[in-house]
Structure formats: structure tokens, C-alpha cells
Design a protein around this nucleic acid. Structure first.
Lengths: 284, 284
DNA sequence: GAGTGGTCTAGACCACTGT
DNA sequence: CAGTGGTCTAGACCACTCC
């Protein structure tokens, strides 16, 4: 059993992957189309089936195709992503001063997860944990200080798949003035986190949100019902009060094939009498 | 050559991957540490080398390990990500009305890519292209209208690897008042895009930035010098003028192991005399 | 030169899908 | 049932790194 020398510099499985990728990106193979079977590709490229499988593995890892037992591999349908808008923090802040009835119109969970509450199983879990080194640094508090960790999860009942997941941290010291804030049965809280903080005398000054992307593990993929080749978006939001103190940190995870994060930045107007640009003056 | 039946329900290569993943995440195997060699794992799990290779492929695709020819596989060192701050749009807008000397302190390229200009090869390319269906929709203009496409790329000279890449689109109709805006030799433009738009009478009202993540193709990975298992962050920024018209669209790509996107949202203060929360009243 | 991981082959059994 | 892809084996050659 000798391996024939590669015809080119590029390994054969990469050649196959490149060829198929090109045919997908050029539109010759359209979303939902069946790929050639492994047997057919094996014959076309005169190679062992393992090589073809390797090539398909590459495309699967790039999120371009899906394959499962018994069925032919197909071109992945490009995802339709739900837009997750941020920029409602100001609205949320103004709401905190409004009466309870008005606040009740928007739940805390919805604000955090961005998913409307319907036909899903929400889970909320509160826990007091010692601050890790990382979180202690975020809050500028000693390592091991008490943190209130609040976990929000939403699950799709039929498949059991996770739809949203986020964790929020608050130093217990900041909220011990209002025992209700440590009581998970009080969720969802009318007016959300901004109002919760208002009840202990905290006024928010700004939010800082950072976004990274990671590749989920096989276990993650199973929990979320994700296919191979789909990254995970992870956000960390710092809620900062008007004294520049970090009062809450919240982490959230989003499957990148279902989610698009949208951030808006509104600008103030120039003064009415601002100088108009004069091309003749050549002020470039 | 018979395949022994799997000892459990889980395929062996997943069992091996899970075991190694756990040892990495628990800290038993630390960043930079060598993994057991394929031969050792093969013996430990009494399986063929192909199964072990498959398992390592899984971990590589998750970005947990790196491996190359001749050297033992190692645990990937967690990336240090450069923070890419947004939220300077207001500052940039105010700068547009300032004198040239002041504007010249910040280049257009730097504003777009977030990478300081030093020891890199910047490339700027202008091109007039017909609007695709997608872009026509963004601008609410007829398909096929003239767009000015400006491509910004920065390359690391030694490795030839791409450091940053972004493309901006502007309807030619909007900028024909100033021919310099179609001249790529005028880059970098003092004061950046905001000032460029100012020269044709456009005042910006807001920015809308959306973020998605995708898995790069093998070719992308080579161009950017990325390892397997690292996703790509992609942003699309709409520049919207004070009349709610989309005047510029800009796409940018960032390797997710080197980049963290940071968005800030500043809130206005509550009025001085806002009602203080009264726990006794129990207004929850 | 010994040891590492990368590529490839040929053959086998299995789980699942459709008819 | 035939056909699909998923898993596994055993053996081979190759490219590369390090001693």
C-alpha cells in the first residue's frame, strides 16, 4: 500500500476542498444543493475515500457544507442572522425613574438576551461566589470578595437546545441595601438592571461592551444545537456608574450563525453657523 | 483489517479529544506544554494513529492546540487581543471643522484600521464599480450605480501577512463635487472620512456598526497568517448623515485571536432633583 | 539519524436515510 | 434493500525539527 506522490505541491485533500469551495462561491453549487458523493469525488480525483473525507472535513470546518449519516452532503444555506441592537441603554435609564406599571412592560431577561419571551423555557439562577482574580480586577475589589452571580438561560423546549445564555456579576457590597436584589424569585424585575441599581442609589454613566469570537467546543455545539464551523460571539459588558466605578459585569454568548450584533453611535450636530467648506480655497 | 467496536457510544477520537480538552482546561496541561505524541496516545488508547490524528484535528479546529511537522503538538497560548475602541466618531466629527494642521495629526487609514502606522506596508486602492444588489439596497440607489470603492490594506513586510483590511463604498454621485475624493494619491486624508464628506457638504448624524463572526477559508488563513480554529470578526459600518441617508458603507475584517472590538455608550445624567428610591414604599 | 506530525491507501464495519 | 456518510485499522512514504 504505497501512497502515490502528490501531483502538485498542495495536498490532494486541499486541492479537492479548493475546487469545491470555488464551485460553491462561484454559485455553480447553490445553497441546499447536493455535493458529489464521496464515491464520485474519489473516482474523479483518483484517490482514496479518506482523502475526500478529509476535504469535506475542511469545508465543514469552514461552515460551507453540512453532512450527516445516510444523507448526501449539501451546501450550507447562508444563515439569516437576528440583529441584536444595542443603544437602548439611555431609554432603559430614563425608564428607571418611571412608575412600576410602565417599567413592567419590559422584562430584565429580555433586555439582556435580546430574545422575545415566547415558547421558551427561561432559567434564572442566583449564586454568591468569591471573586476570581479576573473579576476582582474588573471591579477593583479584593480577590475573593463576595459577588452575586446571576445566570440567565433560555432553552427551546422541543430540541432542548440553548437559545441564549448570559451571566451577570455584581459585588454584593454594592447591593446589600436591597435584599430583594439577592432573591432570584423576584425575576423578571420591572425596569431591568438599571432600575435594580437605582434601588441602591446607583446611577449609571456609561456602558462599555467588548466583542470577541471563539470556536465552540464539541460540547458547546451540542448544547446550542450548532453545526461545525460556526464560531461563537462573546460579549462582555461593563456597567459603569457616574463616578466611573464598574458596578456590574455581564458576559453573554451568541452563536455566530444566528446573531448579528449592532451598535449605534449618535453624534451631536455642528453649530448652525459652522464654516462651510470652500473648495476654491483648497484647504486640504 | 476489522475495526474493533467502539467501547462506548462516543467515537474514540471524541473521547480522546474530550480527555485532552479537559486536561487543558483544568490546567494540567498548560499553554506551551507539549501534548503526548501521537504514538503515545495511540498506545494509551489502544487505537490506530489515524484516530489520534482525528482527535488532534478536533482540538486544532477549536483553537486549543497547534501542531506542525517535525515538532510535537503544543497547547496554544491564549491570545492577547488588541482592543479596538470605537466611540471616537464624535471627536472625529468635531475635528473636521478644525484647521488642516490639527487634522493632519490623525490619518484616515489609522482611523479605519485601528493599527498605528509603523513598519507596515500600507496599500490604498480606489476603483469605480457598479453597485451590487446588496450595496444598492444599503444606499437606496439603483443597482449598477457608480460606487467609489476604496480598499485599505496593511501588510507586515517580513512575513507578508495581512495586518488589516477594509473596504469602503461611497456613491460617486455624492462626492463628484470634489474630484480629489476620487484620487487615491491624496491619501492619507487629514481629518479622515468625516472631513472628506464635509468637503462635499455632508454632515454625519450617526454610525451604525454591526459585527458578525465567520470561519476563514484556508486561503484567508494563509493571507493573514492565522492558525486553524481562529474565527474572523467582520464589521460593517454605515455612516448616516443628518438626513438619515446612508452616505458610506465600510467593511472591515479582524482575526479574532488578535482583536477585541470595544463599543462605548455614554448616558446623559438624570436631573439633579430626580426622585430617590424609597425601599420602605416597596415600589418594586 | 531518530523522532515528530502530515499525507495517503485499501479494506472493513457501522449507522442512518430513502425507496 | 441499496446508497450514503462516519468510524476505524494497518501499513506506507514524506517533510520537517532537533540532537
Amino acid at each position: 500500500m504505497r501512497a502515490e506522490p502528490a501531483t502538485g505541491v498542495l495536498p490532494v485533500h486541499h486541492q479537492i476542498a479548493n475546487d469545491l469551495r470555488e464551485r460553491i462561491q462561484s454559485g455553480e453549487l447553490r445553497p441546499g444543493d447536493r455535493l458529489p458523493t464521496i464515491g464520485a469525488l474519489q473516482q474523479a480525483w483518483s484517490c482514496a475515500d479518506g482523502v475526500v473525507r478529509e476535504a469535506l472535513g475542511v469545508l465543514r470546518a469552514e461552515g460551507l457544507i453540512t453532512s450527516s449519516r445516510g444523507k448526501p452532503s449539501t451546501v450550507r444555506t447562508p444563515p439569516t442572522r437576528a440583529k441584536l441592537w444595542t443603544g437602548f441603554a439611555q431609554e432603559q435609564k430614563d425608564l428607571a425613574l418611571r412608575p412600576r406599571a410602565e417599567r413592567a412592560k419590559r422584562g430584565a431577561i429580555e433586555m439582556i438576551s435580546g430574545v422575545p419571551i415566547e415558547e421558551v423555557i427561561p432559567t434564572t439562577r442566583y449564586e454568591i461566589i468569591p471573586a476570581s482574580a479576573e473579576l476582582a480586577k474588573e471591579f477593583s475589589i479584593p480577590e475573593g470578595s463576595d459577588l452575586c452571580q446571576r445566570t440567565y438561560e433560555m432553552t427551546e423546549p422541543k430540541s432542548g437546545h440553548r437559545l441564549s445564555f448570559s451571566i451577570s456579576y455584581i459585588p454584593v457590597e454594592l447591593i446589600h441595601g436591597n435584599p430583594d436584589l439577592l432573591d432570584e424569585t423576584k425575576e423578571p424585575w420591572p425596569g431591568g438592571h438599571t432600575h435594580q441599581l437605582y434601588t441602591v442609589g446607583i446611577e449609571l454613566g456609561k456602558f462599555v461592551r467588548s466583542v470577541i469570537a471563539e470556536q465552540p467546543t464539541a460540547g458547546d455545539r451540542q448544547r446550542w444545537g450548532m453545526e461545525e464551523g460556526i464560531p461563537m460571539l462573546r460579549t462582555r459588558t461593563q456597567s459603569i456608574d457616574i463616578n466611573d466605578r464598574v458596578v456590574e459585569v455581564s458576559d453573554a454568548w451568541y452563536p455566530a450563525d444566528r446573531t448579528e450584533l449592532v451598535f449605534t453611535e449618535t453624534l451631536t450636530r455642528w453649530p448652525e453657523d459652522h464654516p462651510r467648506f470652500d473648495l476654491e480655497k483648497g484647504d486640504l
